[in-house]
Simulated scan of single mutants.
Amino acid sequence: MVQYSNAGLDASFAALSDATRRGVLEQLGRAEASITDLAEKFNMTLTGMKKHVGVLERAGLVSTEKVGRVRTCKIGPRRLEEEMAWLERYRQLWDARFDELDRVVEELKRKEQVDGRKKRE
């Protein structure tokens, strides 16, 4: 069985749980941006954006570099492989459950059709 680091998963999913942070990742997927640019884009204070970027940075999803007075953000080094493996495990589990539910529904439909024919006879 695959073992997952709870701290890494917790940090990633906590970072991704916020719509603003997901938006920041989308924005940085297109191009690097300063924290000031991101704050303007998301109509929020510089302090608020710094907090969001900090959460993303601690999760390894964003990296920042300060040159002079400008802190530039870019997509971080993490590729979310561990998170994808965790999600895939549960996707497979739910797929199997839905497949079984489909089989049960089909069996009930067949029984209903047979019972309907017997009543008419």
Rank of each mutant, 00 (worst) to 15 (best):
64 T>D: 03
98 F>N: 05
83 E>T: 04
68 G>V: 01
121 E>Q: 12
28 L>H: 02
96 A>C: 03
102 D>A: 01
12 S>L: 14
103 R>N: 12
48 G>V: 06
26 E>G: 12
10 D>N: 15
27 Q>R: 13
17 S>P: 03
86 W>E: 12
77 P>A: 14
80 L>T: 09
88 E>K: 08
60 G>I: 02
106 E>Q: 11
2 V>Y: 15
65 E>Q: 06
13 F>W: 07
85 A>T: 11
121 E>F: 12
13 F>G: 01
96 A>S: 03
52 H>A: 07
48 G>A: 06
9 L>Y: 02
111 K>C: 08
105 V>Y: 00
17 S>F: 03
80 L>K: 09
118 K>N: 14
64 T>R: 01
107 E>R: 12
8 G>N: 14
5 S>F: 11
2 V>W: 14
88 E>A: 10
84 M>T: 10
57 E>T: 04
44 M>P: 00
77 P>N: 14
33 A>D: 01
119 K>D: 13
107 E>M: 09
66 K>G: 02
46 L>C: 07
55 V>D: 09
98 F>Y: 13
40 E>L: 08
48 G>P: 12
63 S>G: 08
66 K>F: 02
114 V>E: 04
53 V>D: 01
8 G>H: 15
29 G>E: 12
85 A>D: 15
104 V>F: 02
19 A>R: 09
15 A>K: 06
106 E>L: 07
35 I>S: 02
26 E>R: 15
38 L>V: 03
111 K>F: 08
4 Y>K: 04
20 T>E: 10
63 S>V: 10
103 R>K: 05
35 I>V: 07
20 T>I: 13
35 I>E: 00
62 V>A: 02
33 A>P: 02
85 A>N: 14
98 F>H: 05
121 E>P: 06
116 G>S: 15
110 R>L: 10
20 T>N: 09
56 L>K: 01
36 T>K: 09
18 D>F: 03
81 E>Q: 12
40 E>D: 07
35 I>T: 03
53 V>C: 07
53 V>Y: 01
121 E>W: 10
17 S>R: 02
28 L>T: 00
91 R>A: 11
120 R>L: 14
15 A>E: 10
109 K>G: 08
23 G>H: 11
3 Q>P: 11
82 E>S: 04
89 R>P: 09
34 S>C: 06
75 I>H: 06
120 R>Q: 06
26 E>C: 12
9 L>N: 00
23 G>M: 12
20 T>S: 12
31 A>L: 13
98 F>E: 14
107 E>A: 14
106 E>H: 04
107 E>T: 08
92 Q>F: 07
64 T>V: 09
22 R>L: 06
78 R>D: 15
47 T>Q: 14
27 Q>F: 12
